[in-house]
Design a protein around this nucleic acid. Structure first.
Lengths: 236, 236
DNA sequence: TGGAACAGAATTGTATACAATTTCTCCGCA
DNA sequence: TGCGGAGAAATTGTATACAATTCTGTTCCA
């Protein structure tokens, strides 16, 4: 579990390599299946292989990169996007964020009030952005992300938070796919979000957990029906 | 999430360093709070710092070691054991294994039959081992571990399995504490295990998930009431 | 033509030297 | 005695050289 939360250690080189690569993978500029070569990355970013190695190992542990099933050496490549993977991943997120929502709904009413206000505001923005003539996929993704992060941060303790931080980013690639491929279907998400907010507002742990899980599981189903191996894309 | 499942790559040096250190930490021979020095480990195990670094990074990501100061260098030390940490960790395991149990309970009856037989056998062994005059803590831990692993493997897909593999080992330190400190209270566990088996046997997803979660949450509560900062222990 | 084998290139694994940073120690001084 | 600081020791960060492994392309033989 990445206990390794966003390290404050900004200038650490493995850190910047990690973020650069992760960004490229998540945005699809480094295509699923693409090979990653330590020396290339190192020379492109102007560092030696040592920090690159650290970054690669982390990306591997976090599932962005997989190792070709070779024997003695690893030969890493960008993890592919599959329907099954998306499904399982979203179900896992459903559990984690569901638990966080349950905990958030158990907070004293006073705390919940502020949270509910925030959530409502974000979801309204999300609604508007979804209805806009010219949709901004980037912004849509960010708003959805914020919505979920909001109640997770309110409910989760450090350990659950760390788990969330370890797992959730892996869903980012699929979430971006979601808003791209299902741009017209986002009204459903708005409604599901409202259900979550209501449950937290009324302080119903069971309902909150249920609502979050439903939201994610439905998303998994919707995405699964349109993801057909979004093949090679972009290069670097 | 350690997508990095137990690598078949046996002879890989980072792998053996990782396992050696992990074992020492989990068994308490490397005390919570103890500093870990790359060069020491390297010379003790007869390798250079490079593979040690890999192992250390992984142990860090998996939560076995933490970085003490917020400076520019890491200075890793063995993660301490606390009541709060145990509580949160067990609740997380409750979610993960609960989900796995739910999925296991949804398998066709034919598959479930074999599973139920296995689970019953293990739990009976566990029962006997718990009642033995001279308890073998090591064996007790292993049996409990097997019991849970059994239904998890039956129900979980690769991603959930990977998540489980990433999180569960971190609970090992607390589980061993549990069987040591609560040796006389293990009958309760046997009973809770029986409830799990019944739910899977009857193919009730809700009941199975609930039973697993109850088992872990109760364990968290029981452990929490006796864990009092099990201070420094052992050295290397 | 097809395939096996070999040579060379490409790539990762490991060790080690050096640089940067942190911690420790001990001495001076009030 | 206690505090502060300078310099030494310890420790981690980075780069790089070399070793081990895997991949690629070509040649040679059936």
């Amino acid at each position: 579990m990445s206990t390794t939360r966003a390290k404050a250690r900004k200038n650490a080189r493995p850190e910047v390599v990690y973020h650069k690569l992760r960004e490229l993978i998540v945005r699809g500029q480094l295509a699923p299946g693409a090979r990653i070569v330590e020396t290339d990355v190192a020379s492109r970013l102007g560092v030696s292989r040592t920090p690159v190695r650290g970054a690669l190992q982390r990306l591997n542990q976090e599932g962005y990169i997989v190792e070709s099933p070779r024997l003695q050496q690893s030969r890493p490549m960008v993890a592919p996007l599959t329907r099954e993977d998306a499904h399982e991943l979203f179900f896992i997120v459903a559990e984690i964020e569901g638990l966080a929502a349950r905990l958030a709904a158990m907070k004293p009413a006073k705390e919940r009030d502020g949270l509910v206000k925030q959530l409502t505001a974000i979801n309204d923005d999300f609604h508007r952005a979804a209805q806009a003539r010219r949709q901004d996929h980037n912004k849509l993704w960010e708003l959805d992300e914020n919505f979920h992060r909001c109640y997770v941060e309110a409910g989760a303790g450090p350990r659950l938070m760390a788990l969330h931080d370890a797992v959730k980013p892996q869903a980012e690639r699929y979430e971006r796919l979601y808003v791209s491929l299902l741009a017209r279907d986002l009204a459903t998400s708005v409604t599901e979000h409202r259900t979550i907010v209501r449950a937290i507002k009324s302080g119903s742990p069971d309902a909150a957990q249920e609502a979050v899980q439903t939201n994610w599981r439905n998303a998994a189903a919707r995405l699964g029906s349109v993801i057909e191996s979004v093949g090679e894309r972009g290069s670097w």
